[in-house]
Design a protein around this nucleic acid. Sequence first.
DNA 1: AGATTACATGCCCATTGGGCAACTTTGCGC
DNA 2: GCGCAAAGTTGCCCAATGGGCATGTAATCT
Lengths: 198, 198
Amino acid sequence: METTAGLRERKKAETRQAIHKAALRLAVERGLDHVTVDDIVEAANISRRTFSNYFGSKEDALLYGEEERVRSLVRAIRERPAGESGWQALRGAVRDELEDMGELDREWAVRTSLTKRHPSLLARQLANHAALERELVQAIFHRDGAGEPAADLKSRIMAAAFLVALRIATHVWIEEQEARPLSQIMEQALDEVARPFP
Amino acid sequence: METTAGLRERKKAETRQAIHKAALRLAVERGLDHVTVDDIVEAANISRRTFSNYFGSKEDALLYGEEERVRSLVRAIRERPAGESGWQALRGAVRDELEDMGELDREWAVRTSLTKRHPSLLARQLANHAALERELVQAIFHRDGAGEPAADLKSRIMAAAFLVALRIATHVWIEEQEARPLSQIMEQALDEVARPFP
DNA sequence: AGATTACATGCCCATTGGGCAACTTTGCGC
DNA sequence: GCGCAAAGTTGCCCAATGGGCATGTAATCT
């Protein structure tokens, strides 16, 4: 992304990435429950204590990429044209993000399939989502809030529904062995969640 | 509910309940992070080891009631009249459940407000929801699955959206200091999630 | 360069989750 | 009622974890 920022920052980012990578690799190789923090620490060439400075747990380390991705999505949503409604902004942002990542995020697939199999990971991921949900709610409210009667509730529902669509689409994508492009499934899921239930 | 089942079963249920209660009380009194498993154990008059036989963690113990409640909801959904569509069954079940609990579940309120403040609890709760989401998907698919083109995806979305509505409604209910009856907020949230996004 | 600040590491400890084995209670067939 | 099998409880133990504190080391600022 950026070559900017001081050496310090770059090193930090590197270390964080290294830990994340190491954790992911080990988890794939041996299965999550046969990986201890010490293992990761060794693989990443850092001290046990340093690990804790970066992440609160194995799970956090594994889901780091996930968090990054969603954070970027939230940013994209904020930067959408002012004229768009909340829902339009959400959809537009997803479309763009998927586009310029070229569909081919192997790590994402790996993380997701780990998450599917591992309750502890799922829990952490959902908790992250919940945190981001709040920001999403604000972003949506900022667009649709004017004059709406129950704008607060609506924004919340929309944010949550949106995340649900993302989550389910990703899972379906994995289950289908990535037969269809993620973007297609994503669109379908978003359509579906926006459609009225009978 | 039932006075049936052997002495053994009853005692177990009692102990489980006692642990749950103790955990909840202590968490309210001192705040969750100032409660250790040992504290709970002491308050509930059981050994440290026995705690682990019942629950895997503080969080599990605290959310026990929650799990029970949702489990009962799922049962209610399964037992709905066969003619109803998935969405109808979901709504009907919620309405009934709320009705015959008379709106006045203090513990529920307490648990929810704890959950709102505590990420670790939220994580666990969402993980539980995820587990139940699967059962919900099946129940819905069983009703709406016939002939639908993308019934799988639709069922998933519906189940998740449904749980989203429940979760948000409960949170709003708490935030409003229980000014409005939960059932009303719940209906509103369900309406909202079933409405198409613009 | 010298001062300041941020970060990495080592040491340490309370808490946790769960395996194992002994002991106690409950349920059941006779 | 008796005695045995099954289920539950407890104590003991240990690896793993999360995080406070102090100290060394590298980066940034002036």
